[in-house]
Structure formats: C-alpha cells, structure tokens
Design a protein around this nucleic acid. Structure first.
Lengths: 202, 202
DNA sequence: GTCAATATTTGCATGACGTGCAAGCTTTCT
DNA sequence: AGAAAGCTTGCACGTCATGCAAATATTGAC
C-alpha cells in the first residue's frame, strides 16, 4: 500500500476519532466540523471530502456490509440447508463476524456509548440496518425462489434484522464475548421470537 | 374550538400540503423552506414555529402514537389474554386503526409516494417507528412482568414493529382496504414469522 | 533525480437550514 | 374598550454542505 493510501486512511481515522472524542466530551451539538477538522490537522473542506455529514464520521461502517461470498452461499441454499442455521451463519459471518468482534471491539463499544449519549444518531444507525435488511431480503428471495415483489422475504428479513439489532445492542463488547457465543445468542433469540408468535402461546 | 386554534391548524395543514406537493413536483432537494412558506402565505420564520425541520412537515404524525387506553389494556393482560391476538389489537387500534385508515387514507397514500420518491425520508420514518417500538416494548414488559432491563420484551417489540412496518408498506390505501382486513393480514404475517423461525423448517 | 500525470488538499463563495430575540400584530377575556 | 396572552414576523447569527479552481503532494516513467 502506497504512501498516499496510508495517509488517507490515517486522516480518515484521525477525523473519526477526533469526532467521537469531542462528541463524548461535549455533546454533538457543541462540536463543529470546523473544530474536528482543526484538531485532526486538516481543513474544514477536507473533512467534507471524507464524510458528507458530521454524523457519518461518527457512525463509520457499522453495521458492516454483508460479506459478498457469504451472501451468495446463503442465496444458493447453503451451507447446511437449514434455513435458520444458515441465516445465522450469514449474519454472524457478515455483521457480527469473529474478525469484527476481535478487531473492532473498541470501535463498536465506542459507537454504543455514542448512541447512548446522542440519540440523534439513532435514525442514521437504523437507516444503515435498513440497507442491510434489503440486501438480506434479496438473498432470502433468491434462496426461496420468491418473486421480487413477494412480501414474505421482506417480512423475514425485517424480523431477522430486528433480532440482529437487538442482539448487537445487548453485547457488552468486553473480552469475554466471542463469535461462538454469538451463534448461540442469535439462535436463542430466533427461538424466542418463533415461540412468541407461534400459535397457542402466551 | 376558537378562531386562533382553527387558524393554527389551517396554517399547519397548508404548510404540510404545500411541502408535499412541491416535493412530489420537484424533489426534496429542489424545494426550500422559503418557497414552502411563501406558497402557504406565511413567513419562513413561521414555518419553523410549526416544524423544526423540513422533513417534519412531510412526515407528519405517521405512524400515530399508540392510543393510551389500548396500551394500558394490553399492559394489564387484556382484552382476551391471548398474547398475539392482543398484540394485534394493540397495533390495529393505534397504528392502523379503522379511523386512521378511513380518515387519513389520502394522507397515508401521499406519504407512501413521498417515501418512494425521496428515500432520504426513510431514516426519519424509521426513527418514528423506533419510538413506537420502545413504547410497545414497555407495554410488553409490563404485561409479562419482565424487569426493565430484560431483553425479551425488546426483542418481541422489535420484531412486532418490523412486522407492522412491512404490513403498512404493503397496503395500497385504496377504498377496498378496511380495518378488518388489517387484523387478518397481521395475523398471517405473525404466523409466517413464527413458522420461519420455529424449529425444523425451511 | 527530473518531470509530467494524477490525486488530494485547500480557500473562497454561496445557499440553505435552524435558532434566539424583540417588536408588532391578532385573538381572547374581562 | 382595553389589558393580557399568544402568534407572526424580521433580523442577526452560526453552522452545514457543495461547487469550483488554485495550490500542493504523490506516483510512475524515463
């Protein structure tokens, strides 16, 4: 990786970190793009070359875009053929993968704190989940051979993402949690949902 | 209702309608608050006395806040005691009530067109659903006697709202649809979800 | 190493958003 | 009719976000 690329990544990281730090210190309303840029040693204009809005610098790429290969495997009916299991595989290999948990533990914890401190960030976060939801929806439609306008894949995708969102929300991002746990937690969650809406239950 | 109050409502409606019309004509980016205010015959400053952002004028009060009485009945275990049935009752008497369908058919259809034309509005809409979700979550927690920090009510509320959102999305807001249909559609949707996540199914 | 090509950073101008404040106007109540 | 209360308006202000062109930095070929 060349010098240019490294510098760009450094700048991006510096902006993200500065934005997060200042926001936690003073609250989003009391931090201006101008300040963030100044502390990261770039011009205000450069900030907007990296991020189109102030919030974007805070949200980063969470949740991560689903892995393309995992998506394709799922769409084609794999890896095991059991729907819920494979769905969990898709979710854990893309959204809450081992790598994500290991490498970005710090960053994800930071984002969680940011959400709690600044609820204004929630809509943006939900919008990102919504984008992923639509990808998942397409994958489910492909896997089940449903037509694009069928409502069922959308329904399943929406509820699956709701489960995922709640699960991520309940993580503590401390050392103890690993990806193996994730599978179990998700499986439990899906089971709970299935039970709650299954006939004859209260 | 006094003259003052009537005038206020008229102004609010005029602003909402103008905002929607201009946005559908030209796209959100090419409509300024100044123009909306001018066409509604008030000052720009007055626009901001009614709405804090341009988007607020477009989204209105959708989805409507859950009816307080329905919420309480549900929280106390009513009206029938069957969880899913009562949840559907709560949703249909508040979010997609007969009145809402009858009276606001036009407005809801308009909002649907706005969403399709301007995806930028989606985050705001999702945020509103999220607020309702949290109310529903509290109601479920009360009903089931769960402690506030229990994750299950949140999980059920999140999936229930996902179902509701998808259901509202699939409505056409034409004459044919009434509230009785709604119950059936929601019941079907919940059943589908239950089946999708129940053990041993693909 | 030099130099042209390419990519990034920066400053400047501009328009729109959104808020606080105080003055003016309208409705309400007595 | 007139005081009290509430709403509208204009103005000033700071911030966000984008387009454009000049300046600066990196790359790759020679």
């Amino acid at each position: 990786m060349g010098l240019r690329e490294r510098k760009k990544q450094a700048t991006r990281r510096a902006l993200e970190e500065t934005a997060a730090r200042l926001t936690l210190e003073r609250g989003l309303e009391h931090v201006t793009v101008e300040e963030i840029a100044a502390e990261a040693d770039v011009s205000t204009r450069t900030f907007f070359n990296y991020f189109t809005t102030k919030e974007e610098a805070l949200l980063g790429d969470v949740p991560p875009t689903p892995d393309e290969q995992a998506r394709r495997v799922f769409a084609e009916g794999g890896p095991t053929g059991a729907f819920v299991d494979d769905l969990i595989t898709l979710l854990t290999t893309s959204l809450i993968s081992p790598e994500a948990l290991a490498a970005h533990r710090e960053a994800m914890h930071l984002r969680k704190r940011l959400m709690e401190r600044e609820p204004q960030l929630v809509p943006g976060m939900l919008a990102r989940f919504h984008n992923v939801e639509q990808e998942i929806s397409r994958a489910i439609a492909q896997r089940t051979g449903a037509s694009p306008e069928d409502a069922r894949p959308q329904l399943v995708a929406a509820t699956a993402m709701a489960v995922t969102r709640q699960t991520m929300k309940s993580l503590h991002f401390t050392e103890g949690e690993d990806a193996a746990d994730m599978r179990a937690v998700l499986r439990d969650a899906f089971r709970n949902v299935g039970r709650a809406y299954a006939p004859s239950d209260d």
